[in-house]
Structure formats: C-alpha cells, structure tokens
C-alpha cells in the first residue's frame, strides 16, 4: 500500500465486503458528505473514502496548480488511490463533478471499476444550443466564481466563530477538524473553473463501465436535460429519476439514495449471475 497516497488523499477504508465501494465527494466538499450513505454499505462492501488534494484533510502541500487545472488531475487522484489500495472492479460512487472525474478515470484504467454511480451528474454545465442544455450561461458561472470570492472571508470567520461559540458542543469541534469545504480560495476557485467550464460530452461514447445515473428533481446545477443526455450517450447506463430535490441527495435524502444504489447493484449482480 502506498502510504504516501493514503496520507496525501486522506484515504479512509472500513467495512467488511470483498468488493470495494469508493465514494468521491463533489465540488467543494470532502469525504464527510458521504457519512450516512457510506455507513449503509459497510456490511457488504469495503468502503473507501478520500479527499481530493486541495480539499478536506488532504495534504495541501501536494497541490499542484498545473495538475489540478483540469479534471484529468483529479481523475489521477482517483487512479492513485485505486492503485494504492490495489482495487479491482470497484463500485465508484461520485457526486456532482466526481461523476465525470470517475468517468475519466474509468477511461484511463477501466479494470479498476465494475460500476459507476453518478449522483447529480452533468457532462457540461454550459448551454450549447440547440442540442444541449447544460443549465448555465457563461456569465452565470462567472457570477458563481465571484460569489465564491465574496464569501471567502465569511467562510474563514464563520468556521472560527462556530467553533468558539459552541464550546458546549465539543463533538462539533472534532467534526469541524475534518474540514467540510476547501478553505483555500485559490484552490477552490481553480476547482470551480475546472469543474464548471469542463465539457466531457465527447468522452461519453468511449465509456465501457456500466453506469447508474441518479437524477435529482429541481436540481439547478445538474438539470434533467443533462442527466438524460448522459443516459442517451452512455451505452450501458440506467437512468433513475429521484424524488429528492436539490443537488445533494446523499445528504438531503440519504435513504432514497441508498435504496436506489442498492437496488441497482443487486439487479446488476443478479444480471451477472443469470
């Protein structure tokens, strides 16, 4: 096991299965967002959690502004973790942009993955009329980057204040030590640019790994049009429309998320046996 990668990407492994199940956090988040969902699979799977370099409790020293300028750099993080743990045929669950990161990783080293589960995925956030509706105009995404900038100072002080004001809840402090979101504004901005201005549509026909697409309702970030486009262009994909609203069903509606993933894994497992 490559201990350097384990430390660099803050890799956590637990659970009892033979088969590995890897959870990748979405933009701006770290592995703690998977807490509830990952727990549900620990009896049947060897659960793997990690943080991308630059977020969570990863090694910030390892951040490379050239490598992480595109999603390829993040996909390399996934492959590094797979190699470090010697994974084979793992279930990869990616939220938001991690769906695309996992997909890119699967194109480079398909043997690591048996299944891709995409939660709130979008192959391209920008509109490309008339055939593609990603949901955003360029200036709207620029506006998001500006908002991130304006909230940066707020973030830093907000966390500090939260810790100080809740000394009566020591558990919270411990939880906070696992940073929820990347606080380095430069890294966050670069991740945002790599995420929101990427266009992975041309890669879709090359994907060989079976894929489950979990489409949220009323998700402004990954609209139904984006999920359907993926479903049409990924040959081995299953599309599930969720009851869950918003962009983070694994946090807001963990039960439904767990149930749909489990159902898909059981069905495909049966399919394989049959």
């Amino acid at each position: 096991m490559d201990q350097d990668i384990i430390v660099r990407n803050n890799v956590k492994v637990f659970g009892n299965g033979d088969k590995a199940m890897m959870f990748a956090p979405g933009f701006g988040c770290d592995q703690t967002v998977w807490k509830t969902v990952a727990e549900a699979f620990k009896d049947d799977y060897r659960v793997v959690l990690f943080d991308y370099v630059g977020s969570g409790n990863s090694d910030l020293q390892a951040y490379d502004f050239i490598r992480y300028n595109t999603l390829e750099g993040y996909a390399q993080d996934v492959l590094d973790v797979c190699a470090a743990l010697d994974l084979e045929q793992a279930v990869f669950v990616g939220h938001s942009v991690s769906s695309m990161i996992g997909m890119i990783a699967s194109l480079r080293q398909p043997q690591y993955f048996s299944t891709l589960v995409m939660v709130g995925p979008s192959p391209c956030y920008l509109n490309d009329p008339p055939e593609y509706l990603g949901g955003f105009e360029r200036e709207q995404l620029q506006g998001l980057l500006e908002l991130m900038e304006k909230n940066y100072i707020g973030w830093a002080t907000m966390f500090a204040a939260t810790v100080l004001n809740n000394s009566s809840r020591p558990a919270l402090k411990e939880e906070l030590e696992e940073r929820f979101c990347s606080t380095d504004p430069l890294i966050a901005r670069q991740f945002a640019e790599a995420t929101f201005f990427s266009d992975n549509r041309k890669d879709l026909p090359r994907v060989t790994v079976p894929t489950l697409i979990l489409q949220c309702s009323d998700d402004i970030i990954a609209p139904v049009s984006a999920g359907e486009y993926l479903h049409q262009h990924l040959s081995k994909s299953v599309f599930k429309q969720m009851e869950a609203t918003g962009h983070c069903p694994h946090m807001s509606h963990p039960e439904e998320t767990i149930q749909l993933i489990r159902q898909y894994l059981n069905e495909t497992a049966v399919g394989v046996l049959a």
């Binding site: 955003f136 939260t162 919270l172 929820f180 970030i221």
Partner: peptide, 28 residues
C-alpha cells in the same frame, strides 16, 4: 439570482444540514 442559486445548493444547503446554522453568507 442564478449564481446565488448554485452557491446556495453548494454551500448553504450542506452547511445548514451539518451545522444547523449559516452565518454571514453573501448572496444576491
């Protein structure tokens, strides 16, 4: 606004879920 809707999804919702509070968030 649209950028604020995205920011809301990415930051407000998860933070509220986790911390039960949000402070000094700049939105439009």
């Amino acid at each position: 606004t649209v950028p604020s809707q995205v920011f809301y999804q990415f930051y407000f919702v998860p933070l509220l879920k986790r911390e039960k509070r949000v402070e000094e968030m700049h939105l439009s």
